[in-house]
Write a protein that binds this DNA or RNA. Structure first.
Lengths: 114, 114
DNA sequence: TCGATATTTCTAGGATTATTGAAATATGGA
DNA sequence: TCCATATTTCAATAATCCTAGAAATATCGA
């Protein structure tokens, strides 16, 4: 991931409503959620959710598709992976000891050797 | 890492100059770098570098200490780890398959089983 | 076609953030 | 003490971002 895209992604993640939306979409999975449903659950107005969804889309973190009258938004896992990787490469390239603990410890709750 | 701190960290990382500074400081290691040196290498004015360093400090990504006439700034590895972990927990809690590839693939260039 | 639903676009505002240069503060050495 | 160095603070400006509501667009069903 080039710096330019990383900057956009960090900018998109630095806003409370957007972070909340992205989290919801990650949990929702590939099926995604309709804009209206997102607005309801995130408790923001239609035009505001549209603004933030566009921002997330511009950053490549979500994708949109139309389903009848609804617009369905879904998280772009590749992009999320991209940011994590960007951070890791950025620190690890200089200081591998930074990431090592995260990798061995976190491991997404899934034991690495399982 | 609570959401509040994560938002601040993402905000700090979403600016070109600050991202550049943090990368330099990660490479510099625990010894850190003087504000003036950072300003030179990042090619920004003294007051501007001060502004951005304060922003990074507010986000907990760097720490400052005085050494004679210079202020030495150094990257806070714990905080960097914190963001990576935050992203991983956020996605992996809902969808473990997102992070798995990053963990097995990236691994900071260090083979996991070495 | 008409009306209802779902969402986006536009406009205007207020708020936050970034940049600049000048002035202020802190430190060390002559 | 005085001067030079290193950095921060301040004030003003420019730029960007967020929010809200009204109007516009798209889709569906009657």
């Amino acid at each position: 991931m080039e710096e330019h895209r990383a900057l956009a992604a960090f900018g998109a993640l630095s806003q409370e409503t957007r972070l909340r939306i992205l989290r919801m979409l990650v949990v929702a999975g590939p099926d995604g959620m309709a804009a209206g449903t997102i607005a309801d659950k995130a408790d923001v107005s239609a035009s505001n959710v549209s603004f933030h969804l566009k921002e997330l889309e511009r950053a490549g973190l979500v994708a949109a598709r139309r389903d009848s009258r609804s617009m369905i938004y879904s998280a772009q896992y590749d992009a999320i992976r991209g940011i994590i990787r960007f951070l890791m490469e950025d620190c690890c390239s200089g200081r591998p000891e930074i990431c090592a603990p995260v990798i061995t410890a976190a491991a997404c709750g899934t034991p690495l050797k399982a």
